[in-house]
């Protein structure tokens, strides 16, 4: 193999790496300041894969990727606790909301803060 061919292959490999890196950066969302996850009770075979926050027009929006690692469908319940800058709970607790999962499904749960004072959120999930 000529030296030119080797250099071209090396260049192609490098550009591929740069492309992949740029893709992963463009898809990244901001991490929530603390973004605590609380699993309540005896809950098994469920995993919070990612929790990201975006502030748009001053209102915090949150995206939580939850995976049902069980081989069967199930219904879980979740809620968010919205916290202010001091880490104190804003307003009343939210209602628990049921969410249905197929076997091995990854679902993104979205929510929006109740007002402009929320700067962080805690995600609570239970059976």
């Amino acid at each position: 193999m000529s030296i030119w061919m080797k250099q071209i292959r090396w260049l192609v490999f490098l550009s591929g790496l740069i492309f992949l890196a740029s893709c992963s950066f463009s898809g990244a969302k901001n991490a929530c300041p603390k973004g605590d996850v609380v699993y309540l009770g005896d809950i098994e075979d469920v995993e919070v894969i990612n929790m990201s926050c975006i502030s748009k027009d001053g209102i915090l929006r949150i995206f939580v990727e939850v995976e049902n690692t069980k081989k069967s469908e199930r219904t879980l319940a979740y809620r968010f606790d919205w916290l202010n800058e001091e880490g104190l709970l804003l307003g009343d607790e939210e209602a628990w909301k049921p969410v249905y999962f197929y076997s091995k499904e990854i679902k993104t749960i979205r929510s929006t803060a109740p007002n402009w004072l929320a700067t962080d959120a805690k995600f609570l999930i239970k059976e």
Binding site: A77, E94, A95, K97
Partner: peptide, 28 residues
């Protein structure tokens, strides 16, 4: 605020979920 599944009819969990989701949607 717990999930209520006593009967299949429209219940407190449905009311709370709808109100919360719609309110947050208006806010954005």
């Amino acid at each position: 605020k717990g999930v209520e599944t006593v009967t299949i009819e429209f219940g407190s969990t449905d009311l709370q979920s709808i109100a919360e989701q719609m309110t947050r949607s208006i806010l954005t």
